[in-house]
């Protein structure tokens, strides 16, 4: 049984993003006309308003921009202390997640992390959650 997690925000584009996670593929939409990546998923390129896009496989690497540690529990699934991070992916978009196999005391500005998968379950079903950890373990 997969790990229960707080509910995802779902729409037709988010559905597609999460369905790729079931085969552990981290894909974001890339505009077919101007090449801009977007996140969260949506119908339109914010730069050129084109609705043509490809679900493009990401390298799964990024640099740490910031982090915060919750000392109060907001979700039963994530008892305090719980640390979350924001990365700048190599392809450009920023991506929020949580760090694995590294504690908040070892995080630093610009540190490179890479993609890991962990399982998840909510009322929309099973999926895999993209999280980030050190390049070498």
């Amino acid at each position: 049984m997969a790990t229960p997690r707080p509910i995802r925000s779902m729409d037709p584009y988010a559905e597609q993003f999460w369905s790729y996670t079931q085969i552990k593929e981290f894909r974001l939409q890339k505009c077919s006309e101007c090449g801009k990546f977007r996140w969260p998923p949506g119908p339109t390129c914010d730069r050129c308003l084109s609705d043509e896009f490809e679900w493009t496989l990401m390298a799964g690497r990024g640099k740490i921009l910031s982090w915060t540690t919750f000392h109060r529990s907001y979700f039963p699934e994530y008892p305090a202390p719980h640390t979350t991070i924001v990365l700048e992916l190599d392809e450009g978009p920023l991506f929020a997640a949580y760090p694995v196999k590294i504690g908040p005391e070892d995080l630093s500005e610009g540190m490179e992390l890479s993609l890991r998968w962990t399982d998840g379950l909510d009322e929309f079903g099973d999926y895999n959650l993209p999280v980030f950890g050190p390049l070498t373990e």
Partner: peptide
């Protein structure tokens, strides 16, 4: 609310 699956809201 978007990052709730990772435990990031508020």
């Amino acid at each position: 609310f978007y990052y709730a699956p990772w435990g990031l809201t508020s």
